[in-house]
């Protein structure tokens, strides 16, 4: 198929990847947690690593953040090897962690004012507070914040140094639906400003809503990469045609549902085909099949 062949990449664009990973591997006591991942994240996109718990998402991200050593493969983040990179590089990436890093006794404003002093060009605290919707909570102690507010503070700390690339590791785990929606709006705002975002999640709807492209990780491997609507290309083209015949349910899985329908309509010249439906697999079906295939195929 010549149509899917990609044009040669112009040299100027080769460096326009925020993250480039080849054959990434990490083992814990002999067990491969990351087992040969290839990954490219383009500048300006929101990329979601989607996978079940224990798939190796967090380990992959921690290697890219430069806080965990890899056992094999190559990694380049903003043009540098994260295992070698220094402070100037760290100031160009942002990480949203599970902790503010300064305990709970400070107020929101004090926390932001303190960490502003770690960055070359911090966002002014007032602007940051407004961006994440914490202006009214600025004088509250961190202890007194709700779970959603605390997450906003962590996001504010992650973007305080104006990062080119932001890592979000399972950012909405444990959030209520309202807080999740607000959080998504926050990430969309970052994308609009040109920040590249690499997020991990085990929520399908989150990946579908936020990401320009989704990489499905299972058993330490990347099993598919595509925009959310195109994930699992071949799996998706299969449709299931269901109807009722002589009182019994019938179904056919086919890549050519139109042909099946023509036969069915010909067999029912009188009109209606009882119980007729044609369904394409949704994101969840595709995802579950991708994950299952990877887990049944241990290397």
């Amino acid at each position: 198929m010549t149509a899917t062949q990609t044009a040669p990449v112009p040299p100027a664009l080769v460096h326009d990847e925020a993250v480039r990973v080849r054959g990434l591997a990490k083992r814990y006591s002999g067990r491969a947690v990351v087992d040969g991942i290839d990954l490219d994240v383009r500048r300006g996109e929101v990329f979601a690593l989607l996978g079940p718990n224990g798939a190796g998402k967090t380990t992959t991200v921690e290697i890219l953040e430069g806080v965990r050593r890899r056992d094999g493969g190559e990694a380049s983040v903003l043009g540098a090897d994260p295992a070698q990179a220094g402070r100037a590089w760290r100031d160009r990436i942002g990480v949203v962690g599970q902790s503010t890093g300064a305990g709970n006794a400070l107020t929101v404003r004090e926390t932001l004012d303190h960490f502003a002093r770690y960055h070359a060009t911090p966002v002014p605290t007032g602007e940051l507070l407004a961006d994440v919707g914490l202006a009214d909570a600025a004088r509250q102690r961190v202890t007194a914040l709700s779970g959603g507010q605390r997450r906003r503070l962590e996001v504010a700390l992650g973007v305080q140094g104006r990062p080119e690339l932001l890592f979000l590791d399972e950012p909405t785990t444990g959030m209520d639906p309202v807080a999740r929606r607000q959080f998504w709006t926050l990430v969309e705002g970052l994308r609009e400003r040109g920040t590249t975002v690499l997020l991990t999640t085990h929520y399908l709807d989150e990946a579908a809503h936020l990401a320009d492209r989704v990489g499905v990780v299972s058993a330490g491997r990347l099993v598919d990469v595509a925009p959310p609507a195109e994930l699992g290309g071949a799996l998706r083209s299969e449709a299931t045609v269901r109807w009722t015949e002589d009182g019994a349910p019938r179904s056919v899985v086919t890549a050519e549902p139109a042909a099946v329908l023509r036969d069915l309509l010909a067999a029912h010249p009188a009109g209606e085909v009882p119980g007729l439906t044609v369904t394409r697999p949704g994101l969840e079906d595709v995802y579950l099949r991708l994950v299952a295939v990877a887990q049944e195929d241990p290397r």
Partner: peptide
């Protein structure tokens, strides 16, 4: 205590010397 709470891990990702 700070290490157990994850405060130090946060400082590391900030590039704190």
């Amino acid at each position: 205590e700070e290490r157990d709470r994850g405060d130090l891990a946060r400082l590391q990702t900030l590039g704190t010397p």
